[in-house]
């Protein structure tokens, strides 16, 4: 009886070789030291680097489980066991196809692509109504006739954006309050000017 075949030895981990920031050529030979200088073999750029322990962490790979008879299977990979249901379209998806959506949702790849095309704003983008209202209220003062249009616009945007999500890093309300006060003063001045002209005619 023949002995069972030996298991193939696992391949050695790949050396850390990030792409050059300029020409994308893999920077070989820089993973040994934690800091130093290297020269890119592609574009001869001198790269100064500082490295951290996580560079040697093996990359995790999502591995799907093969399905057996009776298992629900992935819509895109019939040979893989389904592990989730897409929250958008209801298709079964395997480990490889399961993608995170906003608010903890689980989506399939076509629904993620469709979601990106629908919204004009990207997931990591936010409209900052406070900055917009602040700029519209203050900047046109340099050319004051423009405030006839920008003051009402600033006031509307400030009121509309009052409850909307604000900047992550500067979430304070002072810009909105300033925009409301300044635009109200500007509108008041225009109304006063209009009334005085009408009275004098």
């Amino acid at each position: 009886m023949e002995p069972p075949p030996l298991a193939a030895p696992s391949p050695p981990p790949e050396p850390f070789a990030p792409p050059c920031p300029k020409c994308k050529t893999p920077l070989a030979g820089i993973g040994e030291a934690d800091a130093g200088e290297g020269v890119c073999g592609g574009c001869a750029t001198i790269i100064e680097y500082t490295l951290y322990p996580v560079r040697n962490r093996p990359k995790p790979v999502a591995r799907a489980v093969r399905s057996v008879d009776g298992d629900a299977t992935c819509y895109f990979h019939p040979q893989n066991q389904a592990v989730a249901v897409c929250d958008e379209c209801g298709r079964y998806v395997c480990t490889v196809c399961e993608l995170p959506g906003e608010d903890g949702r689980r989506l399939c790849p076509p629904c993620v692509s469709a979601g990106r095309k629908k919204t004009k704003l990207k997931a990591d983008e936010v409209v900052v109504y406070d900055s917009l209202a602040f700029t519209l209220a203050l900047l046109p003062v340099l050319f004051w006739p423009a405030t006839l249009l920008t003051a009402p616009a600033a006031l509307f945007i400030a009121i509309y954006g009052w409850k909307k999500p604000r900047s992550l890093v500067r979430p304070g309300a002072w810009k909105l309050i300033t925009a409301v006060v300044v635009s109200a003063i500007e509108i008041g001045l225009w109304v006063t000017l209009g009334l005085s002209m009408w009275i004098n005619t």
Binding site: F16, P18, Y49, T50, L51, Y52, V54, R55, L121, K122, D124, E125, V126, V127, V128, S131, L132, S167, L168
Partner: peptide
């Protein structure tokens, strides 16, 4: 009009 964010988590920084 807009702010766009790009995060880099400290535990993920390779270099």
């Amino acid at each position: 009009v807009t702010e766009r964010y790009q995060r880099v988590f400290l535990r993920d920084v390779q270099g």
